[in-house]
Write a protein that binds this DNA or RNA. Structure first.
Lengths: 226, 226
DNA sequence: GTTTAATTTAAACACTTGTTTAGTTTTTGT
DNA sequence: ACAAAAACTAAACAAGTGTTTAAATTAAAC
């Protein structure tokens, strides 16, 4: 069975897809470095010189390839989110019980974001507070589409009489993603608290305990009977 | 009854407490402006000139009063989090059923953070990713203390046979706070989605629907029976 | 009222920022 | 092989960064 513990597979697929459109190896190299640094030091906290240094290229290459730092970010967003929509939508048509679909949705989300921590942190938390909304129209569309998919799954469960009907569906995504993000954003705190000394232990905890906790939470929220 | 829809009361109390220690009006003015700008544009995205301009003071005054930009941030954190611990701990000794305590804890958290959005966004999401951990030891202690309080409440409910015992307690806070933060960090998205056109509508939605959703979630998670 | 201390200021400091320019090297097409 | 295009580079640009300095103003103390 295809287990979700590899970030590498999707990564390779994406590179293949994207490179057919417009990205060459150098651009990808820049994007990868940019993601790493943006996620570590924030967008404003990362300079083009930092990026070019780590990517071992000339400073001018970023402007040459992407035009500006802002447009580098836009390219990064596109690069990293282009195939999530497909992944979610294909889940819709799988032959699974509603609850299993929800569980798998959680699994996809967590694995997905866990493999692309940097860019999702920027997307969800750094950019929304600023006046960069106009640049992120495509991302808003992605969110809307994913919400529609979730709604379809839940409505299915509701019509089958499995899920309760007094749930505010748009607030479920915040619970799923918010729980993960809050955990991960406070990584040092939880690493100490839960004795997750190594990176492996930390990642395993996310893949197992945290994912299970979120699935348990959503299940309790959806299936709970008064 | 004391309703939680006022951010002003706590704000006034805090100012009174803090000013007795070391803060004068000018310092407070700088801190308030700093919080506003940090929360809008991020720590790195805000310059001391921005702050001094909006606070209508000379640039040198920030260094004069706080020493540096980093230490201004530290002062801001202390200024804004000093009384949350007391508020949570006093809840522990109230004569309430465990579930009501949990619900009130959620209410306190959401109101509290909602009234201090800026600083909490910085604390939870901007600073944790960088190497600023050493500056935030006090904040980590606050988090630990609050977790202990939550644990006390839940253990109480468990020993009374009301709460299930297979819950990972440290993961409950991420669910509570993460849900709120994810909602608020994607404010423009949810404002459009849920037609919360005005600031009042948005705030009311947080105070009512979102708080209820989180309480419902935690209740389902704690009380759910197989 | 004078002196001492605290506050406030404008200017300068050295440094980093994103971007552009003008020139060089490399690759590509014929 | 040669010309055109693309890739790449070092240097410079103007603007902005956090911080410091030294002088001016205000407040406090005696």
């Amino acid at each position: 069975m295809f287990k979700l513990n590899s970030c590498l597979i999707l990564y390779t697929i994406r590179n293949t897809i994207m490179s057919n459109i417009e990205l060459n190896d150098k651009k990808i190299q820049i994007l990868e470095v940019a993601e790493k640094l943006f996620s570590e030091k924030g967008f404003d906290g990362t300079s083009i010189r930092d990026i070019s240094k780590m990517a071992k290229i000339n400073i001018a290459m970023v402007s040459y390839y992407f035009g500006s730092k802002e447009r580098l970010l836009e390219a990064l967003i596109l690069y990293k989110t282009s195939d999530l929509k497909l992944q979610i939508e294909s889940l819709l048509h799988e032959n699974l019980e509603p609850l299993d679909k929800v569980n798998k949705l959680v699994e996809i989300y967590i694995n997905r974001i866990n493999c692309n921590r940097g860019i999702y942190r920027i997307l969800h938390f750094e950019l929304t507070s600023k006046k960069r909304e106009e640049n992120l129209a495509a991302f808003a569309e992605l969110k809307k589409g994913n919400l529609k998919s979730l709604e379809t799954i839940i409505r299915e469960g509701q019509s089958k009489g499995i899920f309760r009907t007094d749930v505010v569906i748009p607030l479920i995504t915040p619970t799923i993603l918010g729980t993960f993000f809050h955990f991960h954003m406070n990584k040092p705190f939880f690493q100490e608290l839960l004795h997750l000394n190594t990176e492996t232990l930390y990642n395993d905890y996310i893949k197992n305990s945290l994912t299970k906790h979120i699935q348990q939470t959503i299940k309790a929220l959806l299936v709970y009977e008064n």
